Simulated scan of single mutants.
Amino acid sequence: MSYPTRTRLLTAAIGAAALLSAVGCAADESNRSSDSTSSQHAAESHSVTSSAAAAAQRDDFDQADVTFLAGMYPHHAQAVAMAELVPERSQNPRIRELATSIEQAQQPEMDQIAALLQSFGQPAPTTAMSAMDGHAGMMSNQQMTDLAAASGSTFDTMFLTMMIAHHQGAVEMANAELAEGRNPDTKQLAEQIITAQQSEIDLMNTLLAGS
């Protein structure tokens, strides 16, 4: 074999070896990337599973806590809906101020209720109110429609009368929680509701007497 021929063969062999090496490195890099992605997904899955397990293992609550929270969420939602009707229908500054206070107090409590239920491993609360019509001071759909259609002093009287009954229902629910519940955070919320809403009941009775 001539020298030029041997040189060409040697050059070709070196080139082939380099190509195989590059392909091998690319495959290794792909495998490492795949392994890294799989590890990341596994870690995320483990984190989610661990969080769910922690919620399932929590035992500092009972059914009374769950019932109270699941019922108070739509109860609060209706109170907020009633308060939102006030600015366009009432000219009474004290009633307008009361409505603002109700919104500012009860919307954050709804967020707290949702967080507590989640920590208990319970489904997210719903604002569906039909199942609670006539229960614990809840207004029916017809009552809400009538309230929305009123204005002026007629609205003021309806709003105060309905909200007093609504608050009394909330206080009743909160007292049941204090008697039967176990969770300290839920019981603290119940105490907070009793204090705030009983004070507002007293104010609304005063406003109603003067209307």
Rank of each mutant, 00 (worst) to 15 (best):
L178P: 09
G169I: 01
G134A: 02
Q168I: 00
V86K: 03
K187I: 13
L208F: 07
P74D: 10
Q192M: 13
V66P: 05
L116P: 01
R182D: 15
G121R: 00
L117T: 04
T127C: 11
H41G: 14
A148D: 10
H46W: 09
G24A: 11
R8Q: 14
V23C: 10
S30N: 15
A12Y: 06
E84N: 03
S140H: 11
D146P: 15
G152H: 02
S47G: 15
Q91G: 07
A124V: 00
I95L: 15
Q104M: 03
A196E: 14
A42M: 11
Y3E: 14
P4Y: 04
V86I: 04
H75N: 11
G152Q: 04
T100W: 06
L147P: 14
L9S: 07
D202V: 14
D59T: 06
G152T: 01
E88P: 06
L9V: 08
S101L: 12
P123G: 00
Q57W: 05
P74N: 14
A115Q: 00
L85T: 06
A81P: 13
A148L: 11
E84L: 03
A22R: 02
D65G: 13
F159S: 13
H167C: 06
A190P: 08
H46T: 15
E84K: 04
A128S: 07
L116S: 06
A174F: 03
L20P: 04
R8K: 12
M144D: 08
A79T: 12
D60Y: 02
S140V: 04
P93E: 13
R6I: 08
E177N: 08
A196D: 11
D202N: 14
L189A: 08
N92Y: 06
L116F: 05
Q63F: 15
Q197R: 12
A81L: 07
E191G: 14
A179L: 12
T145C: 06
V86C: 02
A105E: 10
R182S: 15
G71A: 02
H135Y: 06
N31H: 13
C25Q: 11
E177S: 10
V48K: 15
F155S: 09
